[in-house]
Design a protein around this nucleic acid. Structure first.
Length: 103
DNA sequence: CTCTTGACGCCGG
DNA sequence: TCCGGCGCCAAGA
């Protein structure tokens, strides 16, 4: 079934997931969408661009572990602060070690 | 209604 | 590994 109509509370669903990502862990925009079973990376990204309140928005990044350019500095600062595993270059999170599967 | 935008992702060179 | 190109799809102009 293709349905795929975004639920009215899609924003809440996305924010709920973000709230559950443990420190030192991250999910890609696509991971969040897949986890929810609805929407896609761009839909998730748009929700974040609308504002996330006090939630750890920096724990959601691109599939390759790099942060969106626009918020890169802030994002990396948070990860350095909580010691999220980064790749040698220090500009990307080490997805292999930091990706959260929801468990 | 059509056209553009964008905190994305995958693939090929 | 780095880059460009193309697909994707809701939202706003």
């Amino acid at each position: 079934m293709l349905s795929a109509v975004l639920p009215e509370n899609f924003d809440e669903l996305v924010l709920d997931v973000i709230a559950r990502i443990p420190p030192r862990h991250v999910m890609s925009y696509g991971d969040v969408a897949e986890y929810l079973g609805v929407g896609g990376p761009r839909q998730v990204a748009r929700v974040l661009s609308n504002g996330t309140g006090d939630l750890p928005w920096w724990r959601v990044l691109r599939a390759d572990g790099s942060p969106a350019p626009q918020i890169a500095d802030e994002c990396l600062a948070h990860h350095r602060a909580e010691a999220t595993p980064l790749r040698p270059d220090g500009t990307r999170v080490d997805m292999r070690r930091a990706r959260w599967d929801g468990r």
